[in-house]
Design a protein around this nucleic acid. Structure first.
Length: 660
DNA sequence: TTGGATGAG
DNA sequence: CATTCTCATCCAA
């Protein structure tokens, strides 16, 4: 409802200026930090204020090992590889939230929940675990007073898309099982989307693609298709479609799509649900900060007007720099931008209401060092005035030479933007150039620091072994609209999947009650979780190519593991006591040969060591925490809680060994 | 590097 | 509802 009509109905309506995004930024930062505190690898990527991807591959792989397939109902999800008690109980017999795709593909052996099913079974298990992790995180966010939607899948593209399926307060797992379902699920899911809905395909690209489809489909066609409604399936069914064809279609666009690839090949892979882009490491420092204002109805004409506006903008900018680029006590700069950029746009004169970004011109220059000085008693006013007078106004004049025809002294400015960029980062873990490469330790330390601020409520975190979850989970699970999406890396199904959580559309329902209107998404025609219509495309050459490619992928011995899978381990535990050792020899590497094939009867082991396990208290702290046994297979010390998982770990390796 | 353009939320 | 504001990325010069 427009404000005008709202006022007509309710004349006393109080209109609150929503222009100030500060409270939203604050909440965003808080929730981002919350999610980040759960990450192990610190791959937590923000998109805008209210969306986040997490790569949880490592957490999932760890918990796959912990899973006891003999008692799935009372499973424990471990959230901290240093503290087995940090985690939550869950029922691993089913997915949390909703699933897109078929659940039954003959993977589920009796009582195993599909755990023993070879590759697809393992993938399914990982997605299942991820769905429970997602629910847990969403509940944590609900405890903060906000609701979320979430998509779970094996790459960012699919996770993001599938998160839309059951907005606004649910999660959806895209249950794609790689080779075992011929990637039908991914293709069906992708195919039903309108082109414009695919992240990375914006207005320009979508228009070009739609034009092409229309030009190809006119013969004998009855109704002219609406360009907006053309789907991925439509386009892919064009007989002549090929990567090079797309290249030429898109070459007319001066710049290519934002995913870093303008090539038809990449667009094509997007349409097929492939997305190799990794979840980027968390960043606390933005690459740029800018403030802009438009003066559409009242363009700036005099230099004094412009100066005043520049002062306003620069003042806000300096404030933003201090909140975003200084540490919390505002004592120290964490990063210093090196470059100052001024952008202007002449008032878009005629009817040509081109895109918002049309006709901008900019000029860059070094940012003077004095802006990092502490403001004096007058605040930052002097700094701002000086920056405007000495730097920004000269830049402005370069950009906008006086127009002699206009009487000599008038400008017509519809937009001003001041931006600082090219961050010189003090902290090597953040963005910017200065970093000295070896960030691994720093990332770890940062993570440890973040963890200190994470409040673990014992009442919730240390749920007892009876598997009690907060009641809210039960409530959530009752809602059939809770939607969990798991996305499978379609292009490389043989790999350990990336599991990306896409927390999107966080609806802020805080005190000021600014509904963000995500409810409207409830009724759209998104691909439903009931998948009946199984349209086969008669001429879909691309589909055939995709099938062939998928088969080729399966045949080819691909580099093992995309990004995450090779460098993340199953039990890579470093701890301060003597028990664990993360030296390479002691990392449990999935690919390692096991020392022996002998069957080990773990029950016997338990029995043999039983007394010492129960009473031994090997860590001498009076409880059983540190107790365990030494595995005769791999010589590792195994805590009791992990014994059955460890057993299964070895049996899995045997199983996989048989496959080779 | 700089500047323009595209795309995202 | 469309426009605005902000941030990120890519490409060509």
């Amino acid at each position: 409802m427009s404000i005008a009509s709202a006022l007509a109905i309710c004349p006393d309506l109080v209109i609150v200026d929503g222009e100030d995004l500060t409270p939203f930024r604050d909440v965003s930062k808080r929730l981002y930090a919350l999610l980040r505190s759960y990450s192990w690898n610190d791959r937590v990527e923000r998109l805008g204020l209210d969306e986040v991807w997490m790569d949880v591959s490592d957490i999932i792989e760890y918990n796959v090992e912990l899973l006891n397939r003999h008692d799935l109902e009372h499973s424990w999800f471990c959230l901290d590889n240093k503290d087995p008690e940090k985690g939550f109980a869950f029922d691993a017999r089913g997915f949390a939230g909703q699933v897109y795709g078929r659940e039954k593909v003959g993977l589920e052996g009796p009582g195993t929940g599909g755990y023993e099913g070879g590759q697809a079974g393992l993938l399914r298990t990982k997605l299942l675990l991820a769905s429970h992790l997602a629910l847990h995180l969403r509940l944590k966010i609900e405890e903060e007073g906000y609701t979320t939607a979430c998509g779970i899948s094996t790459n960012k593209l699919l996770a993001k898309l599938v998160g839309n399926v059951n907005k606004p307060r649910n999660q959806t797992t895209l249950l794609s099982l790689g080779p075992d379902d011929g990637e039908e699920t991914v293709q069906r899911f992708m195919g039903s989307h309108q082109l414009r809905k695919i992240p990375g395909i914006g207005g320009k690209t979508a228009a070009a693609l739609s034009d092409y489809f229309i030009s190809q489909s006119k013969p004998g066609s009855s109704s002219p298709p609406n360009p907006k409604e053309i789907t991925v399936d439509d386009l892919l069914s064009c007989p002549g479609l090929s990567p090079s064809k797309l290249d030429s279609l898109l070459s007319s666009l001066s710049s290519s799509s934002s995913t870093g690839t303008g090539t038809g090949k990449h667009i094509l892979s997007l349409l097929q649900g492939h997305d190799p882009s990794p979840v980027k490491p968390a960043r606390s420092i933005p690459t740029q900060i800018s403030i802009e204002d438009t003066y559409f109805s009242c363009p700036l004409v005099t230099i004094e007007q412009i100066r005043r506006e520049l002062v306003k903008i620069t003042g806000s900018l300096l404030k933003r720099m201090k909140t975003d680029l200084m540490d919390d006590d505002k004592k120290r700069w964490l990063a210093r931008p090196k470059t100052l950029r001024l952008t202007t746009r002449p008032r878009t004169d005629p009817k040509e209401g081109r895109g918002y970004g049309y006709g901008r011109v900019s000029k860059s220059q070094g940012l003077p060092g004095y802006v990092f000085n502490n403001g004096n008693a007058h605040g930052d006013d002097e700094i701002v005035q000086r920056l405007v007078a000495e730097t920004l106004l000269p830049m402005f004049r370069e950009l906008n030479p006086l127009n002699p025809r206009k009487g000599g002294k008038e400008y017509s400015i519809g937009l001003l933007n001041v931006c600082v960029t090219n961050m010189d980062s003090i902290d090597p873990t953040t963005a910017g150039g200065g970093g000295s490469g070896g960030g691994g330790r720093d990332i770890k330390n940062m993570f440890m620091r973040a963890r200190e601020f994470t409040v673990y409520d014992p009442e919730h975190e240390h749920a007892d072994n009876t598997g009690t979850q907060p009641e809210t989970e039960a409530e959530l699970l009752e809602h059939s609209d809770v939607d969990v999406d798991v996305d499978v890396h379609a292009g490389d199904p043989s790999h350990d999947p990336d599991l990306n959580l896409d927390m999107s559309d966080t609806s802020y329902e805080s005190s000021n009650g600014k509904a963000r209107g995500s409810l409207k998404n409830n009724d759209n025609g998104d691909p439903s979780t009931t998948n009946h219509q199984q349209q086969q495309h008669p001429v879909s050459t691309i589909h055939e190519q995709a099938q062939a490619q998928a088969q080729a992928d399966r045949d080819t011995n691909h580099h093992l593991g995309t990004n995450m899978s090779t460098n993340h381990y199953y039990f890579h535990i470093e701890d301060d006591d003597e028990v664990w050792d993360d030296s390479p020899d002691n990392v449990w590497n999935h690919n390692e040969e096991e020392p022996t094939e002998e069957d080990i009867d773990y029950d016997d082991l338990r029995d043999a060591e039983g007394m010492s396990c129960v009473n031994g208290d090997s860590d001498g702290d009076g409880d059983g925490d540190g107790d365990g046994i030494k595995c005769p297979l791999c010589n590792h010390f195994i805590p009791l809680f992990a014994l059955s998982a460890h057993e299964r770990f070895h049996s899995m390796e045997e199983f996989e060994g048989e496959l080779d």
